[in-house]
């Protein structure tokens, strides 16, 4: 049974008529053409599909579209302000914190949420927070360094 669902994706209002049981991941990718959010496992176990829902990181493959009515969704496409990258994106570039790049959007969004909650995270906090995001290429050290760098970039921005 289709339903009209209103939500805000990357600061834009979106009205979608669809089956509320479909996953947020599917709607983002298929209906809204936001393919930066990647499909990795469809079981909430790899983190490749992480997006922010009202600022909180979520596996979009585990969220029904009906659950996010009136919510604010941020995907990787919505992080940069115009030409200016989000400091976490910039830090990932500076530290070359990826190879194949498939886990990267989820990693970046989860890191953004981390730094919103803990602007000065300890290494333990970073590792614990990022532990649900799998990377198979670069083995994490550069991702952790990128998050440390992002802490500095955000401060310089202010």
């Amino acid at each position: 049974m289709n339903k009209e669902i209103l939500l805000f994706v990357n600061d834009r209002e979106q009205k979608i008529v669809t089956d509320p049981q479909r996953t947020l991941l599917e709607v983002l990718r298929e209906d809204l053409k936001l393919t930066g959010t990647n499909f990795g496992c469809n079981e909430g176990l790899c983190g490749a599909c992480t997006v922010l829902i009202d600022g909180e990181p979520n596996h979009s493959c585990m969220v029904r579209i009906g659950e996010v009515e009136y919510k604010w969704i941020t995907t990787i496409e919505g992080l940069a302000k115009g030409e200016k990258l989000h400091p976490v994106q910039q830090a990932f570039l500076d530290e070359e914190a990826f190879q194949c790049g498939y886990c990267t959007p989820g990693m970046i969004l989860n890191a953004v949420a981390l730094l919103q909650k803990y602007p000065n995270p300890t290494d333990e906090q970073i590792i614990e927070w990022m532990n649900g995001n799998i990377c198979r290429c670069n083995g994490y050290p550069k991702i952790i360094s990128a998050i440390r760098r992002a802490v500095k970039l955000i401060k310089e921005d202010k």
Partner: peptide
């Protein structure tokens, strides 16, 4: 030299297209 990856900006912004992204 650690020349930055040519594909880096697209991968950090979600623009990099993988096969499943194509329609």
């Amino acid at each position: 030299r650690s020349v930055p990856r040519v594909d880096a900006p697209h991968k950090a912004t979600g623009k990099a297209l993988y096969t499943a992204d194509m329609k």
